[in-house]
Write a protein that binds this DNA or RNA. Structure first.
Length: 421
RNA sequence: GUGGGUGUAGCUCAAUUGGUUAGAGCACUGGGUUGUGGCCCCAGAGGCUGUCGGUUCGAGCCCGAUCACUCACCCCA
């Protein structure tokens, strides 16, 4: 009988790793709530149309990476490839914009893209996602990036760089696109095949190219920064000013272009050099037109997403795994003592003391070995002799000291001994 | 979707030019101590060498296919 395997690119997170995940999630909740964000949980599947409209028909995500399928009614659905479209949909559907001036939401959960897996990139992956609706000023852009900085520090990740850029608004970007396009045509066939193709489909993306020659040619390319209109420039300057006042270090990087259609003005990425070619651990930007495009009011918005797998990979490089250890381990000899130990262990757990026990009636030596491996600080040994005398042995595995305690006092004694340490 | 690399015990890896019964370390189980952990010693268990086909007297090793993993491209978190 052949065993069934997990789906390609969709991974189990086993107990020995789950500590990282719990740490990241609790840090994220703490920091985001602290900045006024509230959690929202949307379904993992949506109407296919939502993503097609929200992310952009011509993006790679929509064109070839979506988990799309027909349900039994024949409706086209898709597993969400990112969270923003869903959150916007929910925001519009429940008319949350009626509540107050602005809204801040976050969401933590799995996303799905049918790509070829590699290091730091999987078909089911997890994101921490935050969105703000109703604010068009630069302060929130700066605050959001600052929050990202705070969050990463709280999680315990260092050595990353915040790169920022401005894409301008629809108007100035149009002017720039034309200028860039004619530059690319002028330079002709010096560029790689991919860039030649991008020239027609999405010229801005040439800045993402990793081919060295293309990078060199682009040195003299027109810069978006020089083309953005006065309003956009003022916005960008104010974002940078805000970051400086908040003490958040950043680098202006004109190559931060982002793959989703809806971005405008501020875009940013948090980059690391320790993850191979998947170097972005988080990214986001402003998308003022999207809510309207998805049938809602004309509300400005900013958001970001962080890749949790990539955070875990970084944490693993830096530190040893966090392991959870039981406090107590019950060892017993004989059937009657085993029963008593079993009931005592439940009492301990009832008091919130993490407790493990041998269930199999093994030799004491073997139980001690297991106790040691479990990492428990205290072992409680109950044999027939102790039971007859209404006593129990309390052994401290660290100090290797052992004492006899009356059975009815064991809980209080343990609590007293443990709190001294 | 395209290209490279790798598949041998739970894990990390050996196995001479193709040659008899595929080994080791770690981990696991038991014992050395009638009831006491780590170190040490002894023993045990654990494998269709990813799968299918081919070449050969003979394949873990060579060839083909397939699957999986992995890295990179593309793209992105």
């Amino acid at each position: 009988m052949e065993a069934v395997q997990a789906v390609r690119g969709m991974n189990d997170i086993l107990p020995e790793q789950v500590g990282w995940w719990q740490g990241i999630e609790s840090a994220a909740r703490e920091v985001l709530e602290n900045f006024g964000y509230r959690e929202m949980r949307t379904p993992v599947a949506e109407k296919l149309e939502l993503f097609a409209r929200g992310i952009g028909e011509s993006t790679d995500i929509v064109e070839k990476e979506m988990y799309a399928f027909q349900d039994r009614n024949g409706d086209w659905l898709a597993l969400r490839p990112e969270a923003t479209a869903s959150i916007v949909r929910s925001y519009v559907q429940h008319k949350l914009h009626a509540d107050s001036g602005h809204c801040k939401f976050y969401q933590i959960g799995p996303m799905f893209r049918h790509e070829r897996p590699q290091k730091g990139r999987y078909r089911q992956f997890h994101q921490i996602d935050a969105e703000v609706f109703g604010l068009d000023g630069p302060m929130i852009d700066a605050e959001m990036m600052h929050m990202l900085d705070v969050l990463l520090e709280r999680i315990g990740i260092s050595g990353v760089t915040l790169n920022i850029n401005s894409l301008g608004c629809a108007k100035c970007r149009q002017v720039y696109r034309e200028a860039l396009k004619s530059f690319l045509v002028e330079k002709g066939d010096g560029f790689c095949g991919d860039c030649m193709r991008r020239r027609e489909t999405n010229p801005l993306r040439v800045f993402d190219c990793k081919v060295q020659r293309c990078g060199e040619l682009l040195e003299s390319a027109p810069r978006l920064i020089d083309y953005i209109c006065d309003d956009c420039r003022a916005h960008f300057d104010a974002v940078k000013d805000g970051l400086e006042k908040l003490g958040t270090r950043y680098a202006v990087n004109p190559r931060i272009v982002r793959g989703l259609d809806y971005y405008m003005r501020t875009t940013f990425e948090v980059i690391t050099d320790r993850l191979g070619s998947q170097n972005a651990i988080g990214g986001g930007g402003r998308y003022d037109g999207l809510v309207r495009d998805l049938g809602g009011p004309d509300v400005p918005a900013v958001g970001f997403a962080m890749g949790m797998e990539r955070l875990v990979l970084l944490l693993e490089q830096e530190k040893g795994r966090p392991v959870r250890l039981p406090r107590c381990f019950f060892a017993s000899l004989g059937e009657k003592a085993g029963q008593s130990a079993f009931l005592l262990a439940q009492q301990f757990r009832g008091q919130g003391i993490e407790t493990e026990i041998d269930y199999e009636g093994r030799s004491l030596k073997s139980q001690m070995r297991r106790a040691d491996k479990s990492g428990a600080r205290y072992v409680l040994i109950l044999g027939e002799d102790e039971l007859a005398r209404r006593e129990i042995q309390l052994r401290d595995m660290l100090t290797k000291t052992q004492r006899i305690v009356p059975l009815e006092n064991i809980l209080e004694t343990l609590l007293a001994v443990d709190s001294e340490k």
